[in-house]
Amino acid sequence: MQVNPKITFFIPDLENPIPTSFISGGIKAGFPSPAADFEELKLSLDHLLVKNREATFYAKASGNSMIGAGIDDGDILVIDRSLEPRNNAIAVCLIDGEFTVKRIKKDNDEVYLMPENSQYQPIKIEEENELIIWGIVTYAIKQMK
């Protein structure tokens, strides 16, 4: 079984949001448009990314088993524990005492934790495995390289 060696968890500090400038009209990735077209508002990323305050936490991803899903080593994941696990959802799971981030795959009566990197094998959940789905990943925050 190949799981992430460690995931570092954080709790959102929703009591002290930091409002940041937000350009609501979007920024074109093609031809530039005049700057006068932009309306600047204030936005707190915590308020945008956290839908359920009591059930949401952040975790720092470790490893490269989910690169095909856009989750790279060091990305910050936003995880909502209030969401129901569902087929194809990306979840933070505790399997046999170790945390991992994988895509849930339910096939008839079998459950797999699927990596998004061909260098890793799927983890088939057997009867003797202890699996706890901690929450569903709703966003991945990354630093651009």
Score class of each variant (00 low, 15 high):
17 P>N: 13
4 N>P: 09
103 R>T: 08
112 Y>L: 02
69 A>T: 13
3 V>Q: 08
102 K>S: 00
117 N>F: 00
23 I>W: 06
132 I>V: 11
93 C>P: 12
5 P>K: 04
18 I>P: 05
40 E>D: 01
122 P>W: 08
64 N>Q: 14
9 F>G: 08
64 N>H: 15
95 I>D: 02
11 I>Y: 12
108 N>G: 03
48 L>N: 05
123 I>F: 09
131 L>H: 10
127 E>H: 07
116 E>A: 13
106 K>D: 00
16 N>L: 11
17 P>C: 10
135 G>K: 05
125 I>V: 15
137 V>I: 08
126 E>R: 12
33 S>D: 14
127 E>R: 05
9 F>M: 12
115 P>H: 01
76 I>N: 06
48 L>F: 14
82 S>P: 12
64 N>K: 14
6 K>G: 10
126 E>P: 07
118 S>G: 11
96 D>L: 00
122 P>R: 03
28 K>T: 15
116 E>W: 03
136 I>S: 06
88 N>D: 15
22 F>R: 10
132 I>K: 05
113 L>I: 07
100 T>N: 00
40 E>W: 01
80 D>L: 03
7 I>T: 12
119 Q>L: 13
80 D>W: 04
17 P>H: 12
52 N>M: 02
129 N>G: 12
75 D>V: 01
109 D>Q: 07
33 S>G: 13
10 F>C: 08
144 M>I: 14
74 G>S: 09
88 N>C: 08
66 M>C: 09
128 E>R: 06
39 E>G: 03
29 A>M: 08
45 L>S: 10
71 I>H: 05
81 R>V: 03
56 T>L: 01
110 E>A: 04
48 L>I: 09
127 E>D: 13
53 R>I: 05
90 I>A: 05
116 E>N: 06
97 G>V: 02
130 E>T: 14
11 I>T: 15
50 V>W: 07
110 E>N: 04
90 I>R: 09
54 E>V: 13
76 I>H: 06
31 F>T: 13
116 E>Y: 04
30 G>P: 10
72 D>M: 05
69 A>M: 06
50 V>N: 06
77 L>T: 09
62 S>M: 13
4 N>F: 02
120 Y>N: 12
35 A>E: 13
137 V>R: 06
103 R>F: 00
125 I>F: 07
42 K>T: 14
10 F>P: 12
41 L>N: 11
20 T>I: 12
118 S>E: 15
38 F>D: 11
128 E>K: 09
60 K>W: 03
25 G>H: 07
97 G>D: 05
139 Y>N: 15
41 L>F: 08
31 F>C: 03
29 A>D: 10
122 P>T: 12
91 A>R: 04
142 K>D: 07
22 F>I: 09
102 K>D: 02
134 W>S: 10
76 I>G: 03
24 S>P: 06
78 V>K: 03
47 H>Q: 12
25 G>F: 01
